[in-house]
Design a protein around this nucleic acid. Structure first.
Length: 191
DNA sequence: GATAAGATCATCT
DNA sequence: GATGATCTTATCA
């Protein structure tokens, strides 16, 4: 089941944890990629110095000040894209970065790799994940009627087992002062 | 195995 | 003009 907007309108830390095990779905023409989210990072509001939006409202960060459930995609280091989902309420800039996923059991770790694999670039910035047919997120448990193959059935079963969430400091935010060591990176490599 | 350097550009100062 | 919410390749040990 596609996640509703309400899911994203909660506290960013909670959304970041609840997204683990959910399925990121990407449709490119007739091709559909189903990826299980296994690593995220939370960027929590204007005071979080690691958050791009902590420097205020700019053209780039505008989307984070909008409604939850929209895609925030930006170019990093001139070569890679990072994909985030906007969270919380209007005028409160926050988002969850998708850092790692699993496709048919194959792990893809790193936000740049995630975007390369799913063909996510700036054209998808500002996309509404609640309405889009190109990119959306589904529940941890795939509904039976959505199962398209035995492979997907197996994947759904594997996902029903309990998993432990590991939390660590975020990556690449040494400049963020007191926020640099906040354990706002979440993963389920172990399950 | 570990660490370092290089690629490459939108964004903000 | 400097700087990244990164990744790959090269060069060490």
């Amino acid at each position: 089941m596609k996640l509703p907007r309400k899911f994203f309108e909660k506290k960013t830390l909670r959304v970041a944890k609840e997204l683990l095990g959910c399925f990121l779905i990407r449709r490119i023409g007739r091709r559909k990629i189903v990826a299980r989210i296994i690593e995220t990072e939370a960027y929590c509001g204007p005071k979080d110095l690691a958050n791009h939006a902590s420097k205020g409202r700019t053209p780039r960060t505008e989307i984070m000040f909008g409604q939850a459930g929209y895609a925030y995609v930006y170019l990093i280091y001139g070569m890679y894209y990072c994909f985030n989902v906007v969270t919380e309420r209007v005028n409160y800039p926050a988002a969850v970065l998708i850092r790692g996923m699993e496709i048919n059991g194959q792990k893809i770790i790193g936000p740049g790799k995630v975007c390369r694999e799913l063909e996510i670039d700036k054209k998808l910035n500002g996309l509404d994940l609640i309405k889009s047919q190109k990119l959306w997120i589904e529940n941890r448990r795939l509904m039976n009627q959505n199962l398209e193959s035995k492979i997907e059935d197996r994947r759904a079963k594997a996902n029903q087992q309990k998993f432990n969430i590991i939390s660590l400091p975020r990556v690449g935010v040494d400049y963020a002062g007191e926020y640099k060591n906040k354990p706002w990176r979440f993963g389920i490599w172990k399950s």
